[in-house]
Simulated assay, not measured.
Amino acid sequence: MQRGWKAAAMAVVLGGAGAAGAHEFTCEKRVQVKGEGQGAPQGEAPRVTKFPATLRFHYTLKNVHPKGESVANLVEDPLLARYGFGSPFPTPMAVGVGESRSATFELKLDTPEACHALAASDGRADDSFDSALRVKWDLGETQCAARVTCCEPFVDCELTCPPDDPYCAEPPAPVAPGASRNAGFFKVHEQALGQCLARGGMDLGVARVESLEQALGLLWASPGLDRNGGVRSEADARRFELAREALVATCNERLFGAREQRGRALDEALRTLRGATGDEGLERRGRELGRHNDAGLGQPLPGGFDAGRATPAHAASIAVDPLEPGRQ
């Protein structure tokens, strides 16, 4: 494992105008990911891809009052409270003119699932989390935050062995993706889509696709509108988008043998669409499966496979949305 640190910081200072004591403190928070060989690009959050991983949180609190000491009455980091570091500094804390105080905290994440659990704890269903430090004093308040992004499951997560575990076996190196095509390809290549459907219908949870017209409907229809022009709910639109990516992934598997690269992601998507895991994670699974479908775009199609010519106008004219209004 390469050693090193990559870091990114995002600081936000909130303060009112007017009173002389309104800007007595500034704070900075940085988060670094141990075990990565290169730093994150300027302005981007560090990305956790190798596990086990250690996050190092670094805090700096500075008194910027021009004449006297400042006293912090409250210093808290709610996201890290469950890990025993909700209060990086003891309060009340007096800081002299021009002086600063620093603190650090390290948090170990053993698996990608642990990283995504932390990402979900900030209340947003995405792959990133923002850990914010809040500082209050008598006449004002300031906040600073740092963002970390977790790897995409089954895409760029890498599990490595701890150096003190002689029984751990390193996973095999990732295999270069085989050929794949995305929704844009299948929506205009009727012959390729027909060859996929010749191997059987698809139960996509929100609909069962049996015909070329239904498959094209899923590829051409608007996720936000049903066949009668009614507006789908946000959850239904997400399920529609996930069903579209699942259709494409299934065709990639059937036609190009792409199972080993994206099989687990497709299985997770189908379980979600069939109601086994609820509606949580729809957007993340759709994005994840879309990345799998895009992964092999630069690879040539298998020898002897004839996708036929692109017929966008005809394909759009025969497309029938298989999701009946109210069925999702």
Rank of each mutant, 00 (worst) to 15 (best):
M1V: 03
A9K: 02
A9P: 00
M10V: 06
L14M: 14
A20W: 04
E24D: 11
K29W: 00
K34D: 04
G37P: 00
A40G: 04
E44N: 05
F57L: 12
H65K: 07
P66I: 04
S70L: 10
E76A: 15
D77T: 12
T91M: 12
T91L: 12
V95E: 09
V95D: 07
V97H: 05
E99H: 08
S100N: 06
S100A: 14
A103D: 05
L107E: 13
L107H: 09
K108V: 13
K108P: 00
L109N: 01
D110L: 13
L118F: 14
D126W: 06
F129P: 00
R134L: 15
G140V: 09
Q143P: 00
C144A: 15
A145E: 13
A146D: 08
F154V: 07
D156M: 07
C157K: 04
T160K: 00
D165E: 09
P172V: 10
P174T: 08
V175D: 09
A176L: 15
S180N: 06
S180H: 08
R181A: 05
R181E: 05
N182K: 05
F185C: 06
F186I: 08
F186D: 01
E190H: 05
Q191C: 05
L197P: 00
A198H: 08
V206H: 00
V209M: 02
V209G: 01
L212D: 01
A215H: 07
L219F: 08
W220F: 13
W220N: 03
D226P: 00
D226M: 12
N228G: 09
N228W: 14
V231A: 15
F240H: 10
R254Y: 03
G257D: 04
R262M: 15
A265R: 04
D267I: 13
A269M: 09
T272Y: 03
G275L: 13
G278N: 04
E280L: 12
R284S: 03
R287M: 13
N293P: 01
A295W: 01
G298E: 15
P302V: 06
G303Q: 11
F305E: 03
A307F: 01
A310H: 11
A313D: 14
H314M: 14
P325N: 07
G326Y: 01
Q328M: 10
